[in-house]
Design a protein around this nucleic acid. Structure first.
Lengths: 206, 206
DNA sequence: TCGCGCATCGTCCGAAAGGTTGACCGGCCG
DNA sequence: CGGCCGGTCAACCTTTCGGACGATGCGCGA
């Protein structure tokens, strides 16, 4: 019997996951929480489970799913299956790098969910079909990571600020902002600030 | 006993809604489908229910929830409660205008869901707490709705296209694009294309 | 029928953004 | 120590945008 613990801030989704899991003959839900913090508290307080089902995004985003994943994997040696609504590339990479054993989208069929839980309990890695496709896509496009400063500029650009406004906000000259923006566009393969912002959103860099 | 029919393309969410409803003493799920089309087909084929629970967005978006809502309300005289993940202002307005009796976000607590279904069965209108807040916010900020053409331009701007590219894509001159963009910025109170794109995203106009 | 909003196009000009080149400085690493 | 990279800045030029006119045609409702 596989003991599963759930953490998801949507009551309806939680009920759905519970229904699916309790409907399987070889697994059951032993506990559920609505935040990542509560989950960690439960595990820290002696809670035991074979698999953790974890949402990536929580409404009151004090602690994201990725951070929680890292803690759980390291401190409790329990496999984590991430279940989320929309998987941007960044989300997926963050979760996988944090040590997630599985990654599913919430629109995955129920048998895929059950399969992922069984695999995780057995120590194997399972990624949803569409998640695998995304990761492959990411591999093909090198991606050229941006520096911290560049990302900071890019965020302000995406928020609609002008170069002048950004310069004032970051206490640098307009020339510097333009310089960063030029590097950003080179790395992203874009030709304008708006296109850079669109591309960044698409790749989940914001 | 309130008979409820579900339409949602996420198996997990569907299981959750079913679990919540079947857990209530005074209601039950009589049918569920994964697309809006199937729902209409079922209703057209003699299916009867007191309340329809309907997702707004379907992955294979041949028919959206708003369109389905209109058909159901007009042709089958059955109250529709819309249950969706992210409620942008535009989504909510579209659903309410189409005749939705209730509008809930998927992260609403289960008792709010049950309450909404009971209200709908009784012919009353219930909007989720956060949905009401949004609608009020919309009232306070006039918002100045954009024309269809303007929205089309705005979408392309947000996608990072240049005026020239947009002009070619829409088979109009650059002057026209600029004209639209000027109107858009006036309506949104923005001062640049990038800011307009950011504002549009914020308000859920895309 | 008259007006109004919408979509279309044009011109002109100044402002903003993009591209290029070159430069300086401060870490960090081999 | 000598590169190399990241961040900073500058001058220059081209392209693109943005704003401010005006103008036409079309459909729809008062």
């Amino acid at each position: 019997m596989i003991d599963v613990v759930l953490a998801d801030d949507h009551p309806v989704v939680r009920a759905g996951l519970r229904a699916v899991i309790d409907g399987q003959p070889d697994m059951r839900v032993v506990h559920e929480t609505s935040t990542a913090e509560d989950l960690l508290r439960w595990l820290g307080g002696g809670g035991r489970a074979d698999v953790v089902l974890l949402d990536l995004r929580f409404a009151d985003a004090r602690m994201g799913g990725a951070a929680a994943t890292g803690t759980i994997v390291q401190e409790h040696a329990t496999p984590v299956v991430v279940v989320t609504t929309y998987g941007t590339d960044a989300d997926i990479l963050a979760a996988v790098e944090a040590g997630a054993t599985g990654y599913l989208l919430k629109d995955a069929p129920t048998d895929e969910l059950a399969r992922a839980i069984r695999s995780a309990a057995a120590g194997e890695v399972t990624l949803g079909a569409d998640v695998q496709r995304r990761l492959l896509g990411r591999m093909r496009a090198p991606g050229e990571s941006l520096s911290a400063r560049e990302l900071e500029v890019l965020r302000l650009v995406a928020a609609g600020r002008s170069n002048d406004a950004i310069a004032r906000e970051l206490f640098v000259s307009v020339a510097t902002v333009k310089s960063h923006l030029a590097h950003i566009s080179t790395k992203l393969g874009t030709r304008s600030r708006t296109e850079a912002a669109a591309t960044a959103r698409e790749r989940g860099m914001l």
